Amino acid sequence: MSKQFGEIVAYWQTEERDILQLIGKGVVDIMLIKENFIQAFGTDTTYSYDMVASYADYDAYLMSVREKPLLNKEYMLGKRIGLIDYPTSRSGYIAPMRLLKDLDLSPQQVEIVYAKSHQELRNLLVSGKVDLISTFWQEEDDLDFSRNYTTSLKEKISGSKWYLKMLEKNTDLRCEVQAVLAELAEKTEHPRYYHNITIVNPCQEMSQ
């Protein structure tokens, strides 16, 4: 990789408009992102972004601190629900909003409280500012929450994917990127979820 890149510039974007600009203009060479962003812009064909690795799909849950949430209109009516303030968040926005629609509940029939991150959602729940949050389950949640007080939204959420810009058939770069990602997955100190990386169409030497 060092042969082809003199320096590395990293973008850590939490604002959706910034992410969209990076993708829409093909600014980055390597990115970790949700597949729906790529599909929305068609950048896999425009800029030849090739999926090189992916993380596992996961479940979205309604989480409470005192009871197991029910997926019916009577239970949800009037509840204070914490959601992520990003319309592209599958577990924190799309899945719960689809649930409300399926239950024939308008956003006015519940109280939606928005947060900037999944950790902020958890803080809202612990502090009693919301009755429920929509999120994913992580290992650390065993310390503060009970799995008995979660209810699956019955919708698998697509895991994030690593994409590499392949305007040229740069096979050596693709192989090296995959090798580095696999190595980082083994060494990461992040939650166990990030250890389970799948290399997409691995290079021959990696699959041996």
Rank of each mutant, 00 (worst) to 15 (best):
E111G: 11
P87L: 13
E168Q: 12
K25V: 00
G128H: 00
S160N: 15
E176A: 14
T171N: 13
G6E: 10
P69G: 01
K169L: 11
E15S: 10
R174Y: 07
K165I: 03
I30R: 06
Y193F: 15
V110D: 02
T88W: 14
Y194E: 04
H195Q: 15
N196V: 03
A95T: 12
H118Q: 11
P96N: 01
F136M: 10
K129F: 09
N148C: 01
P107S: 04
G6V: 02
A40E: 13
E111A: 08
G6D: 08
D102Q: 11
K169Q: 13
Y86L: 13
E183V: 02
L105R: 09
A40R: 15
E168F: 05
P202S: 00
S158F: 04
D85C: 02
Y163E: 00
K3D: 13
R147L: 04
R90S: 05
Y194F: 15
K3M: 09
D141W: 09
L70A: 11
D59W: 09
R98T: 13
S207I: 13
L105F: 05
A56S: 14
V130R: 02
A182I: 00
D29S: 00
K25Y: 10
Y11C: 05
S127K: 14
D59P: 12
R17T: 07
E15V: 14
L71N: 02
Y194H: 07
D29K: 06
L77Q: 11
T135Q: 12
E15P: 08
L173H: 02
L132I: 01
L164I: 03
Y47V: 01
E189K: 12
Y149K: 05
Y149S: 01
F41G: 04
V27L: 12
